[in-house]
């Protein structure tokens, strides 16, 4: 029978190289390439491993501007069967409530599904909200921080790691899991899979024509939170004293003296 899985992936600006305009304090977005949220690749990898073990299908969904096609093509290159890009101007400006609502409604159209797999969090907004919120809309059980999963007799056994504990939860399908970051090594893409995208065109685009969601529930209007402003993170003022000499022995003496002056008990 296998598992019908849906993986949620986000298309994000590569925040590793985002810069702030020092005069206006705004984000310089021009020329910043977007990528698939790195932590979502762990979710895709887990789905593909489960498919190899138990059979079934993997569908990737993403709500994003049209450019995210490239991201979904990348995911298809890893071997997912089908990809759906949810894109429409009316979805723009959504906070996590409106995003999770839109994703949940799209997922409902993909019924029957057994397992929804989400990433740990995104590198641009880092809220880790969406998984729990989608589970709430769909009224299905969920668990976070999953590092490995087994499937037996209609149940998902999700192993997860907390600070000081390893836990295994047993969840009935359908259910949702969010995968811990770095929990596996995402596979590289294969050319033959990428070619499939060109030949069979398994990448679908859904707009609100397909979903028919009320404008009041989506995009900016469907979002209870408002970003008022964004300012560069103020730095913490520090003493900025640097040892100005070449002699290593003197340098460490200087440092130890300074630390003792600060009242630190290092000796």
């Amino acid at each position: 029978m296998g598992l019908n899985m849906i993986v949620a992936v986000k298309w994000v600006p590569n925040t590793q190289i985002v810069n702030i305009d020092p005069t206006t304090g705004t984000l310089i977005r021009e020329g910043i390439p977007s990528i698939v949220n790195p932590h979502d690749l762990n979710a895709v990898e887990l789905a593909l491993r489960l498919k190899e073990k138990y059979g079934g299908t993997v569908t990737a969904i993403s709500m994003a501007p049209p450019a995210a096609r490239a991201g979904l093509e990348f995911i298809m290159g890893m071997g997912v069967d089908r990809a759906i890009l949810i894109t429409d101007k009316v979805f723009a400006g959504a906070d996590t409530l409106a995003t999770s609502y839109t994703l949940a409604k799209a997922i409902e159209k993909l019924k029957p599904y057994d397992l929804l797999i989400f990433g740990h969090e995104t590198i641009d907004s880092s809220t880790a909200h969406i998984g729990a919120q989608v589970a709430s809309w769909l009224k299905i059980p969920y668990i976070y921080y999953v590092i490995d999963t087994e499937y037996r007799d209609g149940y998902i056994f999700a192993k997860r790691r907390l600070e000081k504990k390893i836990e295994i939860y047993k969840l009935p399908i359908p259910c949702l899991i969010a995968v811990a970051m770095r929990s596996n090594e995402p596979r590289p893409i294969k050319l033959e899979y990428k070619l499939r995208v060109k030949l069979e065109n398994p990448l679908e685009v859904w707009t609100n024509n397909e979903l028919q969601l009320s404008r009041a529930c989506i995009g900016l209007r469907g979002s209870p939170t408002r970003v008022e402003k964004a300012v560069p993170t103020p730095t913490i003022p520090r003493k900025k004293m640097k040892y100005e000499g070449q002699d290593v022995k003197e340098a460490v003496k200087w440092l130890v003296d300074k630390l003792l002056e600060e009242g630190l008990k290092i000796i």
Partner: peptide
């Protein structure tokens, strides 16, 4: 990091850290 630190030493850690360990041991 130097702009965001109170005290800084420029140098190869492979040299600085052993020297620092030695100095702290000496003082102890």
């Amino acid at each position: 990091i130097f702009e965001n630190a109170d005290y800084g030493i420029v140098g190869d850690y492979k040299v600085i850290i052993p020297a620092l360990i030695e100095e702290i041991e000496r003082r102890k």
